[in-house]
Design a protein around this nucleic acid. Structure first.
Lengths: 186, 186
DNA sequence: TACACTTTTTGACCTATGTCAAAATTTGTG
DNA sequence: CACAAATTTTGACATAGGTCAAAAAGTGTA
């Protein structure tokens, strides 16, 4: 079965017509580690679903590579600010493990929303969930020690250390790689 | 004119029936400074629109009062995690300036979504915007110095110092009140 | 198996910002 | 107006975690 269709069905009942149309529009692609799905300055046109693999978003701050977030399979990913507001992206999107992706464009989604009320609902529910997640993660994050932040992250992504290297994880938490290394060494 | 209806019309075309129904369902209330709209442990049942006034969300971390976010008029506010997932709230919602509020309950919104497709769309667009905002604010926030964080916040909320006291603002930024005071003193 | 490259760990040192306490200032109220 | 309460500022000092550099460990590949 199409994993993205299954994912959508977790949220809503999908009509047969909508299902068929999504499958026709969707772009299925295998992408190798290291490939960039989006560059800074370009506008994000597509919303990706990760069937398998791992992706990160990052940007350069004062010359340093700072990871913003890491996404495992069964995640929906784009640069929200850029995709939703049609503005140049402030971040890169990079594949960090060979990945299988399914994507549709922004414009295709607009058509689907209008054509199928259940997809409008899917959109609402999906965005709701993203908010609840973001809200939950950031709450109480400030004023945590480096160790506490790392432990919180492990609750959210128990297998993150298998998916991304230390430098990426450390910068997600706003701490240096050396500090994270010391924390892990107990 | 009803300010919340106007707000909705910024996002969608609202049918006359939907408009009438929202106005009938909506609870209009004046709330005094200091009142708590939601307590930790209780589930958020309502989505508020702030016509005038200021509201903050906060929680206690290691015995300290930590402000999570501050909302001025024309904001939509609830405890997202609690409201959307029907779980006990991890934060308080407190009125910090006498406010005029308009609210509907979660259940009322579910009915409205089903009854009026344009409101389902409103929901999607509203949540999209919240994501774009959150996404934008947090990006690059890590690895900033206390001064840079404060300057970033001022770009988002130019008049925040008029709405909330220093301690609230400092904890929003994850810095101590003393540090913020020193930054402002140049 | 060995070489080259990448990633992680360790060490030495330093600084931004936290903490605690008290003084100064501002705000609210009878 | 004057006092009490709340808020902000200032001072002295402590420390978590940053930086830079180098060593160690891990990984891929010919």
């Amino acid at each position: 079965m199409d994993p993205f269709i299954n994912y959508i069905k977790l949220y809503i009942d999908l009509s047969h017509e909508a299902e068929t149309e999504i499958q026709q529009l969707a772009l299925y692609e295998e992408v190798a580690k290291g490939h960039q799905l989006l560059e800074v300055g370009k506008t994000a046109r597509r919303l990706y679903f990760i069937v398998s693999g791992t992706i990160r978003t990052f940007f350069y701050q004062k010359g340093k590579d700072v990871t913003y977030w890491i996404y495992p399979e069964n995640s929906v990913i784009t640069s929200w600010h850029s995709y939703l507001l049609k503005k140049p992206s402030a971040e890169y999107i990079e594949v960090i493990e060979d990945s299988m992706l399914i994507s549709l464009s922004y414009d295709e989604w607009q058509d689907l929303y209008s054509k199928y009320p259940e997809l409008e609902r899917f959109g609402r529910l999906l965005f709701q969930e993203q908010i609840a997640l973001l809200d939950d993660f950031y709450k109480g994050y400030y004023f945590m020690t480096a160790k506490e932040k790392y432990e919180l992250l492990l609750q959210f992504f128990p297998d993150i250390t298998l998916r991304a290297n230390l430098g990426y994880i450390a910068s997600m938490l706003g701490i240096s790689q050396e500090t994270l290394s010391r924390i892990r060494g107990k």
